[in-house]
Write a protein that binds this DNA or RNA. Structure first.
Lengths: 237, 237
DNA sequence: GACGGCTAAATTGTATACGATATTTTGCAC
DNA sequence: GTGCAAAATATCGTATACAATTTAGCCGTC
């Protein structure tokens, strides 16, 4: 349990309160799949883990619920979100809807140094792919999402960036739940293809590749009701 | 001041807490422009207004800050958001990015009864336009946004619907701040044109009209820095 | 042995209390 | 009268306390 606590404390100050740090720490834990969907996050436990009162723990959980990463049930508590197949479909539908547009925006304003940055991301991603171990796996998951997030950042639209933050994080949950192949890294080369298309200014092709890429990720899912897996409804645990 | 208090108490239960009601009440007040950008929303005042403790008031303000309708400054308090011109541009850029996609999704699954519903909305909107008075104006503002929100609802994607909720609400703030013409109702007929295009299944045209419509709204804005207008920096309250 | 209700423990919902930070006011020197 | 410094005030940040609801355990009855 303490493992999650040590992996954080990343010290931010621009936020309004210390609850932000807790939120970010828990979010990272969810996105990196150290916390499984359905896991109960009681306010007391969270507070103790971070050595703060329930007030802050609660605020952090509330924040996460707005992002769709945690679902809070009245008088019952907070749980790591357990997206339904329908939710999963909607998440990817949303991505198909917005990512081509973001890509176009990004391509229109991208600078050479930003292209370089993207390529470096790809390199890092590839390096992680070849490594073994849990930590490498987690870093790879994060890196894979970072590609899409960086594109959103380059687009220069903070609102779309925040939205993509949410979509990528929730995608990670969906993949954790419904993903079939060991890792979604199969799509790594597709990232490279997209960057290449951007570089030669072939936006239509880049968008096509992006849609294909998203469809590829989605195709790896087995979207069938797995209700109550990991929840106490399954075995009374 | 009490006027805002009377306009609410709409009783929800599906949410996790009573803070939701307060949040919705304040959001309505902001969207209907009873609360001006920059207005201070102190936790004490909000709590007293709704006869709850600061705890709930704070939770509601936090929630609104996640939606971008309220900005909380550390150790200074919460204020009705005062979107910068750049933020305004990004909000409308986001709308241009997602609304055509939402429109296509909605058109693909729309039922005759839903078309009827849309037309009824238009009628209501037109009726409000011809009326006089503050209440009619406010209702009109809300109705105008409801058109876009209804389209998002028809699309069947809850995530995009929530996103549009946020965008429409923030648009209302932007228009309140930078709008030039007395009311943005100039675009009402455009709503009708869009529905007509959907009805005859001319999606390309519908999307074109939608983009045109959004551009129209944006063109009515005067996006120049108006810093501190309405804030105490202007005349010391 | 299974079911139903009752009590006790745990957990969340909300309020209050206290400390920290920012803002305003006051007072004094210049 | 102006400007700065320090106290007073107001407001936010966080913790703790109490009430309400849910959950779990227990026991008696069928």
């Amino acid at each position: 349990m303490k493992s999650t606590a040590t992996a954080l404390q990343t010290a931010e100050d621009s936020a309004d309160t210390g609850a932000q740090q807790i939120r970010d720490a828990i979010r990272d834990a969810i996105v990196e799949r150290r916390l499984s969907p359905g896991t109960k996050l009681s306010e007391n436990d969270v507070g103790n883990l971070f050595n703060v009162s329930r007030t802050l723990a609660r605020a952090a959980l509330q924040a996460l619920s707005y992002e769709g990463l945690v679902s809070v049930e009245k008088n019952r508590g907070a749980f790591v979100a357990y997206p339904s197949p329908e939710e999963a479909r909607q998440i990817f539908a949303a991505r198909r809807l917005v990512e081509p547009g973001i890509l176009r925006e990004a391509a229109a304003r991208i600078s050479p140094s930003q292209i370089q940055h993207l390529k470096q991301l790809l390199l890092e991603e590839g390096r992680l792919m070849s490594e073994r171990g849990q930590t490498a796996r987690r870093a790879e998951i994060k890196a894979s999402g970072d590609f899409h997030l960086t594109l959103a950042a380059i687009s220069g639209n903070a609102i779309m960036q925040r939205f993509m933050d949410e979509l990528v994080a929730r995608s990670s949950l969906v993949i954790a739940l419904y993903g079939q192949s060991t890792i979604s890294s199969c799509g790594h080369s597709e990232h490279g293809d997209i960057v290449a298309a951007i570089e030669r200014n072939d936006l239509d092709e880049a968008c096509r590749l992006m849609l294909h890429h998203i469809a590829h990720i989605e195709a790896d899912l087995d979207l069938r009701e797995r209700k109550s897996v990991g929840l106490k409804e399954a075995f009374e645990l």
